[in-house]
Design a protein around this nucleic acid. Structure first.
Lengths: 134, 134
DNA sequence: GTCAATGCAAACGATTTGCACGATC
DNA sequence: GATCGTGCAAATCGTTTGCATTGAC
């Protein structure tokens, strides 16, 4: 009989989750590793990677399906959209809803649409100011 | 005075472009490498990578900003949307336009929106059939 | 003939894995 | 006390780069 694997709440796992939930940028594994190391100096990067994958599988966090070579993680498990600044590269949450989307999608040839990923790109307030100054 | 670098049309470059335009899936560099090698058995993977980047810079093809660890390339240089099948993983073009999008985006806090990436996920006609059979 | 482009191999950065030890239940 | 999770180091994967040679113009 198949034993369901139990999930132990280790110090490392708890602190990784806490730190990820604390920020509203969507850090890469090693950005998060740096934060976590302030509280757990002996933690290894491999542990961060392992726990992030595990938390994704548990549905407690999300892995962003976008951009660049590095994976980014999101402490908010709900579906939502993102804004990526083309200047500083940071990714923040976009509020609001895009209601027509699912309907549009359903018209495409034979696909059964179950979801979508949306990333808006542009310049954040901060970087726009820098641009205007120069 | 700055000399503009000229772009030589080598056999490799031409064939890479031809093979990429031939397919409507959006291959990774090494998927394309396999196709191209049928016609140029001595080509190296590095050449494929170098030319893909170059063709992106020239605006002749697009690099997809989505999904997974591997880069994917698109022979169609026009902006358009994609459908990714959650079962077979293939990425195909989605027809249609999502008109309200830019307007919605502009309301978000201080961002100047210049574009967006949209990927729909679901099951392609082929994989839906497999699901129904089983 | 010049200089960009190639093929090869080695380097690289991000992520994953094997293994002995440590910690949670 | 069993076994899951950790830290460390080595392995792996996708991609990039250095360099001597080749080929397009």
């Amino acid at each position: 009989m198949q034993k369901v694997q139990e999930l132990r709440m280790t110090r490392q796992r708890r602190i990784i989750l806490e730190e990820l939930r604390k920020v509203d940028t969507h850090p890469t594994a090693d950005q998060l590793y740096l934060c976590v190391r302030d509280r757990l100096p002996r933690i290894s990067l491999a542990t961060v990677y392992r726990n992030l994958e595990l938390l994704v599988r548990e549905g407690l966090i999300q892995r962003l399906e976008f951009g660049g070579t590095r994976k980014r993680f999101d402490g908010n498990p709900e579906g939502h959209h993102h804004l990526r600044c083309l200047s500083c590269g940071e990714v923040r949450d976009a509020s609001g809803h895009i209601p027509a989307l699912q309907r549009v999608a359903r018209s495409s040839d034979g696909y059964e649409i179950t979801g979508y990923h949306l990333e808006l790109t542009g310049y954040c307030a901060c970087c726009r100011k820098d641009k205007d100054d120069s």
